[in-house]
Design a protein around this nucleic acid. Structure first.
Ligand SMILES: [Mn+2]
Ligand SMILES: [Mn+2]
Ligand SMILES: [Zn+2]
Ligand SMILES: [Zn+2]
Lengths: 139, 139
DNA sequence: ATATAAATCTATAATCAATACAATATAGCA
DNA sequence: TGCTATATTGTATTGATTATAGATTTATAT
């Protein structure tokens, strides 16, 4: 899928973020690469195209996006934060063999008790780990 | 609850871990403090009682425990790993205001689809974030 | 009991993602 | 054009975790 810069800029404006060129490029990357990349991966890839890009900008931009709910952080591994453009509720499965993070449908609201009735829930994450079918069949 | 060192040693032997004095103390701490402490917190507290204790020993010991499924890692925050003696499936809610991590009952198996049927699931974590009732009423 | 080997522990250095910060560049506007 | 606020850069720093090597304790054998 290819996104027009104008449309991406509009998404940023909707969230009251000024659509600078770098911000558009980072958001474009997230929209086009639904692989739950790390800040490092985003930086390395965009750096080729934008030689002056700074790592700090990538970190700053991603933090902005998360605050604006344009992206979500995946902390399935303590080592590194991964970023997901898809906000809608879904779970993440990380294959311990190949490292791939898969999405899966889940509706946790269906299985929580009234225990949390008085809690203000702002963020929900479901993280599974194990072996993916491809890695499992290669053993 | 107070635990006897002999009983704790047995738990370690069951998992094929030699029950050294320091290992017993760390496990005792985890059993007595179900507050999801960090390695740093465990170290700081035990250090008072065991002046020669090294931070590396705490880290090594915790890693051993996790591998042996005597404890589980909570990576709800990317900043730090927290440790939980309670293995049985339950969710974690972190209050963004006071930092407390609450346990809650949840059975995710009830709400996953057949999407993951071919995946080998070794670890399941449910992390919620928001504001706890106490902090909410103090605003 | 003493020697030898193995396991455990300590202390310190190294790692590395993330953050802080100060300097520079850019964009929007009078 | 200049002014001001915002965005970006480059680098220094942080801080949790890991690696490593030597010291100490524990176990085993003679
Ligand atoms: Mn996802
Ligand atoms: Mn818990
Ligand atoms: Zn895999
Ligand atoms: Zn609270």
């Amino acid at each position: 899928m290819v996104y027009k810069h104008k449309d991406i800029a509009e998404k940023l404006i909707d969230r009251h973020i000024k659509p600078s060129f770098h911000r558009i490029k980072v958001l474009e990357y997230l929209m086009a690469n639904r692989t739950h990349p790390t800040a490092e991966q985003i930086f390395a890839c965009l750096k080729k195209e934008l030689p002056t890009l700074s790592k700090a900008t990538v970190y700053n931009t991603l933090k902005l996006f998360v605050e604006a709910k344009l992206a979500r952080e995946i902390t399935i591994e303590d080592k590194e934060i991964r970023y997901d453009y898809t906000i809608e509720n879904h779970g993440h499965f990380k294959c311990e063999s190949c490292g791939t993070i898969f999405d899966f449908k889940i509706n946790v609201d269906d299985c929580i008790t009234e225990e949390l009735d008085d809690f203000v829930i702002k963020d929900k994450n479901v993280y599974f780990k194990g072996i993916c079918p491809r890695c499992f069949s290669n053993t």
